[in-house]
């Protein structure tokens, strides 16, 4: 049973005079993995930063159009609420260096000044780390600093941190590009499991990765949405010539 959770409607964005995204339209289905692909510089990062309103922190950021979360325009909502509902994991792992692993997982609550009881905290930390597949590795070191972990572990810690807030959607911007193949595989497996409880939007450069994990693919070229559809269809019979060229490695 599929239902639309996020709808991007004629959305454009850019920096100052320079328009980076032009009239993007597509929908994201609940509990599915949607991959965003395209050559470097085509605006993938910009697009997902627009989805949780991180874009507006960039100097000169402009945007128009609508992004509807459960039918409500996120640009008419408080950005802080949007960001709590739509979590984000960055290209490079960025755990908070002053916090322990435990506090890092809870950082969304701690930083927002939300008081939790000890049992609630333990519960959230356990659940999130479990979901992020990190629990077994760190359960004895919960009170060490998060920056002592390896890159792949740090990235999973960042995923756990995003999951702890119980977001509707999490956005992953090339989450595996700075990781080794083994950590990459772990994170890919993780996404399969996470799908049960959360909707995932992932930006990736790796065509094979997109083919392995995604249910839907959006292909963006020069800021325009060239093709959107179920992965099966796009990877076997793309409609657009550009998509085909990209998938077969003719450019990008």
């Amino acid at each position: 049973m599929e239902s639309e959770i996020l709808k991007i409607d004629k959305f454009s964005a850019g920096f100052g005079q320079c328009l980076v995204l032009k009239d993007i339209c597509f929908s994201v289905q609940q509990n599915k993995i949607t991959a965003i692909m395209g050559p470097s510089g085509c605006g993938k990062t910009t697009l997902i930063r627009c989805i949780n309103r991180m874009h507006e922190f960039s100097p000169g950021a402009v945007y128009s159009g609508k992004i509807l979360l459960h039918g409500q325009d996120i640009y008419s909502m408080n950005p802080i609420i949007v960001r709590r509902k739509i979590g984000m994991v960055f290209q490079r792992p960025n755990p908070f260096p002053t916090m322990s692993i435990y506090d890092n997982v809870l950082s969304g609550f701690i930083l927002n000044g939300i008081k939790l009881k000890k049992e609630e905290k333990d519960q959230i930390v356990f659940n999130s780390l479990q979901k992020a597949g990190l629990w077994e590795e760190v359960k004895d070191n919960l009170h060490r600093k998060g920056t002592f972990l390896s890159g792949g572990q740090q990235q999973r810690l960042c995923i756990a941190r995003a999951l702890a807030m119980n977001p509707d959607i999490i956005l992953l911007d090339e989450p595996t590009s700075s990781l080794d193949p083994k950590s990459t595989l772990l994170i890919e497996q993780l996404m399969e499991e996470l799908k049960q409880s959360v909707t995932i939007l992932i930006v990736t450069h790796n065509i094979a990765q997109a083919a392995r994990v995604s249910d839907y693919v959006a292909f963006i070229y020069l800021g325009e949405l060239v093709e959107f559809g179920p992965s099966k269809k796009i990877f076997t019979a793309p409609e657009n010539k550009k998509t085909e060229e990209y998938l077969t490695g003719k450019f990008g």
Binding site: I81, I114, N127, M165
Partner: peptide, 23 residues
């Protein structure tokens, strides 16, 4: 699990700034 999720959401909403006030 489901229970936990609801609980979290409640806590979050509780501390969120009031909307009309923000506007």
């Amino acid at each position: 699990m489901e229970n936990n999720k609801q609980q979290n959401n409640k806590t979050i909403c509780h501390t969120n700034p009031d909307w009309s006030w923000f506007a």
